[in-house]
Amino acid sequence: MDKFDNIWQHSMIEHVFEDGTVKFQGEASIKVDVIIHCTGYQYHIPFLKTKGLVVVEENRVVPTYGHVFLPQLAPRLSFVGLFNMGMTFLPAELQSKWISQALSGNVLLPSEKEMMHDVEQVYKQMEERGIPKTCTHSLNHKMDYMDWLSDQLKITRPPQKLKDFYARFIERFHNDHEGFREAFEDNLLIEDGM
């Protein structure tokens, strides 16, 4: 049995060294290039030491510009997939591209002040519309988010047909959690004339 067989299931990191060595609770350690923390749907990030720059308030990761960048540490600290509902594959891909382009200097982010202002405006609009903090990272019916990300990357926006597909998928999911896949596939075939 490999000494890392159980680590992958319960990877409690004890310490990360500057040379890339990760020591897990217990005796095992391994040298890595990248650490990806997958926190699930309830955001809990005690491993992220930012001296209070980023916190979780009612499942809202505060502050995040475009659901991705922490303005004070951008582009060095970023998040991919802070979605608590919705179709996430294309938005996560676009977010990943945005991060890589920002890190490489091919895409310039607004200033920290501009990003913070944008974040504050988003939160203010949500409050005025009665949207709870817990829905901050919900992409349900936010098809314009994919357009916004595409604009940040200066690439062609996703086709309307794809955004319509996402919207129908999300609507059907909300209406029938258990049988939405079968109903969705049947109706999709009919709507597409197949």
Rank of each mutant, 00 (worst) to 15 (best):
K31N: 11
G20F: 02
Q9A: 15
N6D: 09
G81Q: 07
Q101H: 10
N175K: 14
D192A: 12
I99C: 02
K124I: 04
Y145P: 03
F17P: 00
T64Q: 03
S11Q: 07
L149V: 03
N175C: 11
N106V: 10
E18N: 13
D164K: 04
I13K: 07
E127R: 08
P75I: 00
K124G: 01
V61M: 12
Y65A: 05
G66T: 04
R157K: 14
I30C: 02
N187L: 13
K133N: 14
H67P: 01
I155L: 08
G130R: 05
H137P: 05
L109G: 09
K142Q: 15
V122R: 06
A167D: 15
T88W: 03
A74I: 07
E128Y: 02
K23V: 11
A183D: 13
Q25K: 12
E14N: 05
E185M: 13
A74S: 07
P91R: 07
T88Y: 06
L53E: 14
D164G: 00
M115G: 01
N59D: 10
M194E: 13
K51C: 05
P159Q: 06
H177R: 14
H10Y: 06
N140T: 13
E18A: 15
P91H: 06
T134A: 08
V34T: 15
V16G: 01
K154D: 11
Y166D: 03
D2I: 04
M194Y: 12
R181I: 15
S96M: 02
V61E: 07
N59G: 05
S11Y: 01
K51N: 15
N140M: 14
E93T: 09
L139S: 03
K161E: 14
V55L: 03
I190E: 04
E14F: 05
M146F: 08
H15L: 12
Q25N: 05
F169H: 11
R172H: 11
K124Q: 11
I30E: 10
S100H: 08
H174T: 04
A183K: 15
Y145I: 02
S78M: 14
K49T: 12
K154W: 01
R129C: 09
E185D: 08
Q101N: 08
H67K: 11
D2N: 11
A183G: 13
K133W: 11
M116S: 10
Q9F: 14
K51S: 07
G81I: 05
D151C: 04
G52Y: 06
L77R: 09
S138H: 02
R157A: 07
S11N: 12
A74K: 04
H137A: 10
E191C: 03
L162W: 07
R172F: 08
F69K: 06
P159E: 05
I45M: 15
Y65V: 01
I7N: 01
V54C: 13
C38L: 04
D147W: 08
Y166M: 15
I36P: 00
N106M: 08
G179W: 06
T21G: 02
Y41F: 13
E112G: 02
N187V: 06
D176S: 14
V16D: 02
D164Q: 10
L77K: 08
K154M: 11
D19N: 14
R129E: 10
Y145N: 00
H37Q: 12
V55W: 00
F165R: 00
K3W: 01
G130T: 08
